[in-house]
Amino acid sequence: MKFGLYGLHRDRNVDPAVLARRARLAEEAGFESLWVGDHLALPAGEGNPPRLEAMVALTYLAAVTTRVRLGVGLIVLPQRQPVLLAKQLTSLDVLSGGRLTVAVGAGYVEPELNAMGVTLAERGARTYEYLAAMRALWEQAPSFEGRFVSFSGVVQHPSPVQRPHPPIVVGGHSAAAYRRAVRHGTGWYGWGLDVEQIVQARQALAEAARREQRPDGLGELEITLTPPEPPDLDTARRYADAGVDRLIVELEGIDDDKVDGVIAAVGETISSTAGPASRTPAG
């Protein structure tokens, strides 16, 4: 079992000193990965906390850590320009020494998508196409022709450290998300599910795998989950028995003065399970 930490891009963590200190604390506690979310413009009047932009936050985290993997998830792919995003993600992978994991989703906040020039109806089609366009750039293909993005006679250098590209994790609980995970992902990311619900999600993924052809080379689908609350040792073991490979602890709803204690407590759980995975980052 691997453990990640989600939320260092929000709330008081936008203070650079707090962000750096907690990132290093999590790394020393044995967390395998640090994850940030991707929202650019949320609806007004909903009490949204301050948050850093995902690419900028990960660049800072790459600079203040040395071993822990860095995850962006879920990046709302339809509202990102894929040629620019491919370059940003490559740059992050290079600057972090090959520690980047990319988790993508189609998005669900209609006002945010609209603000970036995307309709809710076309988000799925854009997600498929943008993934294909980014892969083309990472694999040095000089051209790509699609409905939403096209290019010809261009390449990007350098290439990602991780070849052919950083791991791609596909998030979401819909049938379409399960299909995208099977077709395109090295892994799948679920959010807020208890042990029984993750069993149901794995069954849905297995059903999608029976209907969709998984490309050679992707290997077995890795299961990542953010549970409803920080797990104790018994709960972590139950998730592991249910087939979860990585648990990502969410900081939202935890009082700021308790965050360091939560990081330390999960560190104890890490020590009691598989040990500090972050000391041997996966490729």
Results as ranks from 00 to 15, higher is better:
1 M>H: 07
5 L>C: 02
7 G>W: 02
7 G>Q: 09
10 R>D: 06
14 V>Q: 10
14 V>I: 14
16 P>W: 07
17 A>N: 09
20 A>F: 08
21 R>H: 15
22 R>A: 13
28 E>W: 13
31 F>R: 11
34 L>H: 00
37 G>E: 09
37 G>P: 11
38 D>W: 11
40 L>E: 14
43 P>Q: 08
44 A>F: 10
45 G>D: 00
47 G>E: 06
48 N>R: 09
52 L>I: 05
53 E>F: 04
63 A>R: 06
66 T>P: 01
69 R>L: 03
69 R>M: 12
70 L>V: 03
71 G>I: 05
72 V>Y: 00
74 L>A: 07
75 I>G: 15
77 L>H: 07
77 L>A: 10
79 Q>Y: 07
80 R>Q: 14
82 P>W: 06
82 P>C: 10
86 A>W: 04
87 K>M: 13
90 T>I: 03
92 L>A: 08
93 D>Q: 02
95 L>I: 10
97 G>Y: 04
105 G>V: 03
109 V>M: 08
111 P>W: 04
112 E>S: 08
126 R>Q: 04
130 Y>N: 11
131 L>Y: 09
131 L>M: 15
132 A>L: 10
134 M>Y: 11
136 A>Y: 05
140 Q>D: 15
146 G>V: 03
149 V>C: 06
151 F>K: 01
152 S>N: 14
154 V>T: 05
156 Q>H: 09
166 P>E: 03
167 P>W: 08
168 I>T: 04
169 V>E: 01
171 G>V: 04
171 G>A: 08
176 A>D: 10
179 R>P: 06
180 R>N: 05
180 R>W: 11
185 G>H: 03
186 T>R: 15
187 G>N: 01
188 W>M: 06
188 W>P: 01
188 W>Q: 05
201 A>R: 08
202 R>N: 10
207 E>W: 14
209 A>Q: 07
210 R>L: 12
216 D>E: 15
219 G>W: 08
222 E>S: 15
225 L>H: 03
226 T>A: 14
226 T>N: 10
229 E>G: 08
232 D>Q: 11
233 L>M: 12
235 T>W: 10
238 R>C: 13
242 A>G: 02
245 D>G: 01
248 I>T: 15
249 V>P: 00
260 D>T: 07
261 G>I: 05
264 A>V: 12
267 G>W: 09
267 G>F: 00
267 G>K: 00
268 E>G: 03
269 T>G: 09
269 T>S: 12
271 S>R: 14
272 S>M: 10
272 S>Q: 15
274 A>W: 04
276 P>M: 13
277 A>G: 15
